[in-house]
Design a protein around this nucleic acid. Structure first.
Lengths: 233, 233
DNA sequence: TCAAGAATGACCCAAAAGGGTTATTGACAG
DNA sequence: CTGTCAATAACCCTTTTGGGTCATTCTTGA
């Protein structure tokens, strides 16, 4: 849907770059939906302090584009033909970590969200939000913030809440203590010396622990204990 | 610094509650700095759609207060005499999980931040932000958002970025495969059958793995592998 | 083409781990 | 005041681990 004329238009725009004010926020867009990308372009061009560098319908050339355009902020769709916006983020961030990237997508699922965030996206705005929100987000991210749609921010916070121990399997304090030493690589003998008890007692605790955890050896017990949050440090 | 008179005043205010409009956002404040709490009170009382329920200088009685006041949103300081706001969050959230709590504090360190978030805080606004930002945050949180100061939102995002494998210790694919079975409780023999190789080869891989990880037994290896993200499922 | 590294396999041997059974002591709840 | 449970301890016996040393095959990159 993006026409060659449009590309030309944007190149022309880019050449005007020489006259821009230093304080302008330079923005590049990656969005395969032509209607939406035109809307965004218009909004950005008509916002004080914003300078639209280019508008791309895929991120096959993301790196080269970025080298040419040197934007301050990139607005990136995820679902684009041939190459996902997430790959674009990885590539751009690895060469230009200081350039801010705002994901602008319809995806509100955990998968894409945490994938993008772990790969360095600086903001995550849903398309269902108003375009004004995106404009505001661009300002925010340029000032060092991390704009997110409320729904997204909530998902992010929720991911912190499910930390607390899922199930402690009724392990006693002593059993957890012994298990902790086991995970540190102590042998039964070393543990017995450390805790000033008999090796047989250490063995006893470990046997009980295995029964409670429904495991049959040390490595499995340690794995289960760490994954369920029973032991940490 | 909160005077008895102030308490009386607030009780009087609470009694007016009967006449409130259903759409009002009911707010309680926990803040030990009298000057700041008065400022916040004033701002809230003068904001359309906000109803100040009470203003407390500590959260010793947080649960009882909440039962009486039934706020929609609580603004909670962290550093208060006798009882930390974090304890307040835990208590209130365990009985009233639907009540939104915004932390309002000077602390911008990771420790308090992630502690609060994991315990269920719904927003985290720094005191250095303008009071207007807090008012806005109250609206946001009441609409299901997760308001955070830009600096805080960034910290939260950053916590996702350092997830990817810290160090893979140059383990080969095969070594990781064997280690994964080990963590599942497979013995060397079982692994050898599973992978259709000799027990000696399994042992070989494990020996090499221990050297690379600088550990000397299975439990320790598994602990290290899980903690550094080498193995997961 | 040659060296490096991955994957494979084997042997020796001592130490550690794991399963079963039994028992004593002290604390705490009903 | 009696039963339960955590913590302690011991003995038996088999299997598994883990450390050392050596060797072959195959792929891959310099």
């Amino acid at each position: 849907m993006t026409t060659p004329e449009m590309g030309y238009f944007l190149s022309a725009k880019y050449s005007r770059n020489l006259y821009q004010k230093a304080s302008m926020i330079k923005i590049s867009i990656y969005e395969d939906n032509a209607r939406l990308s035109q809307l965004l372009s218009l909004m950005i061009e008509n916002t004080e302090g914003f300078e639209l560098m280019a508008c791309h319908e895929n991120c096959l050339e993301a790196l080269q584009n970025t080298r040419n355009e040197r934007p301050d902020v990139i607005v990136m769709d995820i679902d684009m033909p041939q190459r996902s916006g997430i790959d674009g983020v990885v590539e751009i961030k690895s060469y230009f970590p200081h350039i801010k990237i705002i994901m602008h997508t319809v995806f509100d699922g955990n998968e894409h969200l945490f994938d993008c965030l772990s790969k360095g996206a600086d903001g995550y705005i849903l398309k269902k939000d108003s375009s004004t929100r995106l404009i505001q987000a661009i300002k925010e991210v340029n000032e060092g913030g991390a704009p997110m749609s409320p729904f997204i921010a909530n998902k992010v916070l929720q991911s912190f809440r499910k930390q607390p121990v899922t199930d402690d399997f009724n392990l006693t304090d002593r059993e957890i203590e012994v298990l902790t030493y086991l995970a540190k690589g102590f042998s039964y003998r070393m543990i017995s010396i450390e805790l000033n008890i008999s090796v047989e007692t250490v063995r006893r605790h470990i046997k009980n622990t295995y029964q409670k955890l429904h495991v049959q050896c040390g490595p499995e017990a340690v794995a289960k204990a760490i994954r369920s949050g029973i032991i940490n440090s």
